[in-house]
Simulated assay, not measured.
Amino acid sequence: MTVTVARHGVPGPDAERFAERLSEQVAGRVDRLERSADAIDFAFSTALMALQAHCVGDPEAAKLETWEATVNAMQLGSALFAVTGASEGTVECRINGKMRTLPRIGPQSFADAGNWLSAFWLAVVCREQQRMTQLCEIPLERLRSPEGQYEEFMYHWVDVLQTYWLQRPGLVDKLIAAIEGSNPEVARSVPRDLLQGVLYPPINLFYHFVRKHEEGFSPALVEALELHKAYWTLNEEREADIDGTLALGPLAMACLAYDGGLPVEVESGYLPKYLLEHGWLGEFPT
């Protein structure tokens, strides 16, 4: 039986125009990247916001504009790691409908585990297997924040995903390390509600997915979305934050399960239907 998890919030009267303005900002920032890629992290964060804004008024991702926003965010996430991989030369990237030559800028603090996860989730949602492989081939040490921004379990988690996708050995041990490291008694620097409501649920979903646990995946997905909702509705400030519109990590896990033949018996505005079911796949070059 399909379970519905209602998304919080109601689109305002100017939701569509707000999404359009953000997409226009993304287009402008993408055009400037060919002169200098130093601000690619701002372009990526704006593209993520634009995607979330489109999903506010289009919770099923039934409109082409929402798919375009998804693809732009995915392309910018991949480009961010492409341009920070070396300090010299250029890299060819397709972004916002055309091939672009971007200057490499060398290692940057924003090319970290957090942005890697967002970029990887987007590549999964867009079913961009080549980009998934490219992201998974990035050495883990390259993603470590010099400021020690993340707890160790975040790097274990990235290692789990890279190991799974590239079919490297040691997946079980690495997954156990990620699960144990995300225990609130271990990851003490992370706010407990953030850890339990946002960061841990994708790890739990992956556990059910990789075990091919047909009876357990959908209940775990429902729990993940309810935790996501609880986190983003804890107070008025969070409830008004557009970041809560889309449950990107759980969506990516649901896409893996859907493509892998596991039943995904959940409907929610946090999981846009046509992104989950790859309804726009092949609509235009990505």
Rank of each mutant, 00 (worst) to 15 (best):
A252C: 05
L262M: 15
L175I: 11
S118Y: 08
G97E: 12
A43M: 04
R238A: 08
Y270M: 01
L281C: 00
H54R: 15
L275E: 00
G85M: 02
S182E: 10
E265Y: 05
W280Y: 07
E16K: 08
D31P: 00
E34C: 00
C255V: 15
I138C: 08
L166C: 03
T4I: 04
Y164T: 06
V172E: 15
Q129V: 10
L271H: 01
E141I: 05
E226C: 07
T245K: 12
S36V: 01
C126M: 13
M74N: 14
L76V: 04
W232K: 01
E24C: 00
A69D: 13
L171A: 03
K212G: 10
F217Y: 05
S182W: 05
A177C: 08
P103T: 00
L256I: 08
T4K: 07
A69W: 11
L171W: 02
G12D: 14
T66F: 09
E236L: 14
A111M: 07
G148R: 12
E283S: 10
M253D: 06
A19P: 03
P146F: 00
R100C: 11
V210T: 09
E68Y: 13
R94F: 09
G170M: 08
P11A: 14
I95M: 13
T133H: 11
D38Y: 09
L122T: 06
G106N: 04
G279W: 05
T84E: 13
E237A: 15
G261W: 13
E151S: 13
G282P: 08
K229S: 11
G279D: 02
C55G: 03
L248V: 09
Y231P: 05
Q75Y: 12
L64N: 02
L205T: 10
Y200K: 14
L76N: 04
E141H: 11
M132D: 09
L33Q: 03
L51F: 04
S36D: 11
H213L: 06
D31V: 05
A47D: 06
L117N: 02
W116K: 02
F44D: 04
E34A: 12
A220M: 11
G114H: 11
V266Q: 05
P139H: 09
R168A: 12
V266K: 09
P13G: 13
A178V: 01
Y231F: 15
Y258K: 04
L271M: 03
V71H: 08
R29A: 12
V71C: 04
K63T: 14
F44K: 12
Q129R: 12
V186Q: 02
L122H: 00
E152F: 02
A111C: 01
G148N: 07
V186W: 03
A61F: 14
L256T: 03
G9Y: 10
I138P: 09
M253T: 09
S87P: 02
F44V: 15
V124F: 00
I105K: 11
G28Y: 07
Q162N: 03
R104I: 04
E68K: 15
A178I: 00
G57R: 02
N72W: 12
A252T: 07
G85Q: 15
L221S: 06
V160K: 06
G148I: 05
Y164V: 11
V190R: 04
E147T: 13
A123T: 13
A61S: 14
V160I: 00
V222D: 04
V5C: 07
A111R: 11
